[in-house]
């Protein structure tokens, strides 16, 4: 909660050009990655959460939420899928949860696990099911078991992948380069 309070008080940090362009490219990467999915016809998931986590970790809750909303809107519109505001809200909340646990904090297993579990329960199980029910009148008890099962399988994979990504030497080098330029300007 204290994190939420400090976040509300802080202004949107002024961006240097490199951070802005990096965010733009990460958004592009998210749109690209959403096209590659892993799995079979019964269970499919894509790796866009990696970019969401990365944006939240590097640029904080405000920019994380803004970019998450934008990518959700643009991504849906460009692929011709049906747009619904609820899913944008889900994307925003997911990004906020990542930022609260990862922004300016050391990468720890427990942080990633708690963040991912929160996202699983709040966003993927509660909110997204709610949107499906509102949008298509799908009976809740029909979809919930399927969604729960999917989340039970994907969440551990997501946790491991986020840890692996954030701990990867490459990512830490890039983070160092980003911060070096910000402190100079």
């Amino acid at each position: 909660m204290s994190e939420l309070k400090t976040m509300a008080r802080t202004q949107l940090p002024k961006l240097d050009t490199l951070s802005m362009v990096t965010m733009g490219l990460l958004m592009a990467l998210q749109l690209v990655i959403s096209r590659f999915s892993v799995g079979n016809q019964f269970l499919k998931f894509s790796f866009t959460f990696l970019i969401v986590a990365l944006l939240a970790k590097w640029f904080g809750p405000w920019w994380g939420m803004l970019t998450a909303a934008l990518v959700d809107i643009v991504g849906t519109l460009m692929t011709g899928g049906p747009y619904f505001v609820g899913f944008t809200l889900s994307a925003i909340i997911g990004s906020l949860i990542y930022a609260l646990f990862l922004y300016r904090k050391p990468v720890k297993w427990w942080r990633i696990i708690v963040a991912q579990l929160l996202i699983m329960v709040i966003v993927n199980i509660m909110l997204n099911s709610l949107w499906l029910v509102i949008m298509y009148h799908t009976p809740i008890w029909g979809i919930l078991p399927v969604r729960l099962l999917k989340q039970a399988i994907t969440t551990p994979i997501q946790i491991v992948l986020i840890y692996g990504l954030l701990k990867a030497p490459v990512i830490q080098t890039i983070e160092g380069r980003l911060h070096r330029t910000t402190s100079q300007s």
């Binding site: 802005m20 958004m27 803004l66």
Partner: peptide
């Protein structure tokens, strides 16, 4: 409500410009 609309628009146009490039790269 102090949303940095211009910056977001800039990011978005960068993102869209680079989607095909990154797609080819991938």
């Amino acid at each position: 409500v102090r949303v940095p609309v211009d910056t977001l628009a800039m990011m978005l146009s960068i993102a869209l410009r680079f989607v095909p490039t990154l797609m080819d790269e991938a």
